[in-house]
Structure formats: structure tokens, C-alpha cells
Nucleic acid binder design. Structure first.
Lengths: 193, 193
DNA sequence: CGCGACGTTGATTTGCCTCAACGATTGTGG
DNA sequence: CCACAATCGTTGAGGCAAATCAACGTCGCG
């Protein structure tokens, strides 16, 4: 049930750079298409992340599990988003994150090795990844500030605005693990309007 | 009292790319040298950040002030670090951060406009900034996870390990504003062992 | 159909904040 | 260089937001 449709991917790229037909074909030839069932893993704690992932359909998540067995979610990646364990991806060392599918999904995989080769053959791609990394950094830093300045209630409201589509798809437990509260407390916040 | 010494800067660049003499000269010619007194601002909330900053000597910080007048510190930048309001820098819109000098400092400034021109004339520089942005992203995401998983005590211990030099320089108040506790509570944590 | 994961609710606890008071340190203007 | 103010760090009493623990109904899935 793979769409083998790269249009969303090429659209994503074209937000920041322009490729000709030849470059598009070369780029796509380097990608691996993969279907993921719900809860299927792309990466586990302790493994080396050899790939960056673009989500075509469905939704993935990156998270850790603490000493008490609780999950803490670093990122959700719905369709049209990129996701990776950046630490492991750039260092090619063992990472700390788990990445799995929140629901049945379809993804495109690009290995670090292929990415670096593409930076040489199509330098514009290095620009593309520079730009989306800058944007990810802005988002991540905003989340640090949100953690310092906002109450749990405000972080929840914020989440609903940033991910309006995910609210109905995700189990509440996972929203709690993202905004940094217990599932019980999130339930109580929602109850009091 | 400006050293006009670019060696630390060139050393910083050479960690990730190699430039020839001509390229080094071109790059340096685009920089502006600036001395900052303690508490002197480089950027204030509501301004557009036209520049990225490399710290040659001293230490800078990026922070916001919340509705109750409390500071929340997003980043410290001692010598050999880069600092900027990335949101404002890449969008050229009004930013939310303040950036000022924690102590008397010397910095090098690179404007977004000049940076983008350099990406064309010296493509290797785009690689350099891609790489340091990737590393900043890793650090920022780790801090998000620390906020989700660690107690205040653990975040303080962590801070002492990551910034051993800063502990003795910074007022405790600012360490508190970075790790996300009140100054009073940090004082109490330190008292109990 | 039955089991396990999920969401809810309540009682209790706790980590951290708020407010206030006080010495110590720093900085500053005369 | 001193006097004074301002800021900083400390300590204590009390309060609150959020966690913990436990019990229970519901639902989706095998």
C-alpha cells in the first residue's frame, strides 16, 4: 500500500530551493521508500541513526524512556515533516532516542552518506538542509523558552494551536508526554474547561 | 582595548572547513569588530537582528523577560561561541530576545546580508554554518529533554558540568534563570550539600 | 468475549514558588 | 576614598501547582 508518490517530497524541497528535472531524479534515486505499521520502530535507543526521515503519510515520534519507564516525547512528525535523531545522525555514534510510528505511515529515508554525496553533486541541497535545520533550531529554542515561561495549562493550549490536527489522533497520554505533565494531570486540566 | 586578533575566529571556522588565505581575508573583511561593556546590549526585544555574533572574549547571554518582569535565559555564549536570535536573524522580522554582555566582551559581527553573499562566493561557508546549526540543534533538543526528565537539582549539577568556567563568573541569579528555578530555591539547593 | 491500555476522579504528598526579612557585597556619586 | 544605595545571596514560613498512588469505568483489539 505504498503510494510511491514523491510529489509531497519535491514540494517540500521546493519551498526553499529550485531543482531541475535531472536533479530531482538524481535526488529521488537516492531515497528509500518504507511503509511503517503503527508502533513499528525506525530507531531504538543505543543504535546509530544512519538515516534522516521524511514523512509522506501518517505520523512518527521521537522520544526517550527515563529510569522510571516513563516516555518523554521530543518531537512529533506528521506528513510533510522531517524527523531524525540529529545527535546520532551527525556524529554516527549511538543515540539516545527512539523513533517509531504513531499510526500506519509511509516515509522516505535518506542516509547520511548519501546526503553528504548529494551536498557535493547538488550543492543547493546543502542550502536546503541548512535552512530547515535553522528552522528546527528556532522551533526547539522556542520550546525551551516555553518550558521556562509557561504553565502546564498554557503549554497545553499552545500545543493545541501548533498541532490542531494531532489532538484528535493522538492518545492523550502522548500529548502529556510531550508537554511535560502526567496523564492524570492533563485529564484534570481538560476537565476544568 | 580591542585585540583585533582574528585567530580564535579562524580557528573556530577551521574546526569544520578549510579556507585558503584569500578566502580568509575576504571573510574577515566582512566582519565588524565591537567592544561591549558589561550589561551593554547587542539586541533588544522587538528589534530585528541583522547580525550573528561570534564571541572573542568575555561572555554574552540571550534571554526574554516575562510578564512579571522575570528573566529567562536561553543561552550563554562565552569565548569561541556563536550567539544570535535565530528567529529574527533568518526571518528578518522583529525578535523576542534580548542579547547583552554578561561581562566586558569583544565580539565579531556578521550581517545576514553579508553571510548570504559569502555563501555564494565561498560555498564552503554554507557548509560551516550548516554544521554548527546542526550542533546547536542537538544541544537545544538535549535541553528540551533535560527539562522534561530532570529535577531542578539534576539540572543544576548538569549546568555545573557543562559550564564549569561560568559557575564562578556568573551571579547565581542568572544560573537560576537558565536552569528554570527561582534564585531562592537555587540557594536552598546549594545549602543542602 | 476477555484482557490490557486508556482516561477519569479523588485523596494525599511533594517539589518548588511566594513573600518577607536580613546581612553581605558591589557599585556609584560626591 | 568614603558613604550610601542598590543588588545579591540566604533563610524561614506558608502556599500552590503538579506528582503520586489507587480505584474504577470504558473501549479497542486480538
Amino acid at each position: 500500500m505504498i503510494s510511491s508518490n514523491f510529489s509531497l517530497f519535491l514540494q517540500n524541497i521546493s519551498k526553499h530551493i529550485t531543482l531541475n528535472a535531472e536533479e530531482k531524479n538524481l535526488l529521488i534515486s537516492q531515497l528509500q521508500v518504507k511503509a511503517l505499521k503503527k508502533k513499528q520502530f525506525l530507531l531504538r535507543t543505543g543504535e546509530v541513526s544512519k538515516i534522516a526521515t521524511f514523512v509522506v503519510r501518517g505520523c512518527l515520534r521521537a522520544y526517550t524512556i527515563d529510569d522510571n519507564g516513563f516516555e518523554h516525547i521530543l518531537q512529533f512528525a506528521p506528513a510533510d515533516w522531517w524527523i531524525t535523531d540529529m545527535y546520532s545522525f551527525i556524529s554516527q555514534k549511538e543515540g539516545y532516542l527512539n523513533i517509531d510510528a504513531v499510526e500506519e505511515s509511509e516515509v522516505l529515508l535518506l542516509s547520511r552518506h548519501q546526503q553528504e554525496e548529494l551536498f557535493v553533486t547538488i550543492p543547493k541541497l546543502e542550502r536546503f538542509f541548512r535552512i530547515i535545520t535553522e528552522k528546527s533550531l528556532v522551533a526547539s529554542r522556542q520550546r525551551v523558552l516555553d518550558g521556562l515561561t509557561l504553565t502546564a495549562q498554557q503549554r497545553y493550549t499552545n500545543f493545541c494551536q501548533v498541532y490542531p490536527t494531532l489532538i484528535h489522533t493522538l492518545p492523550q497520554k502522548q500529548i502529556a508526554a510531550y508537554i511535560g505533565v502526567t496523564p492524570e494531570f492533563l485529564s484534570k486540566m481538560r476537565a476544568t474547561r
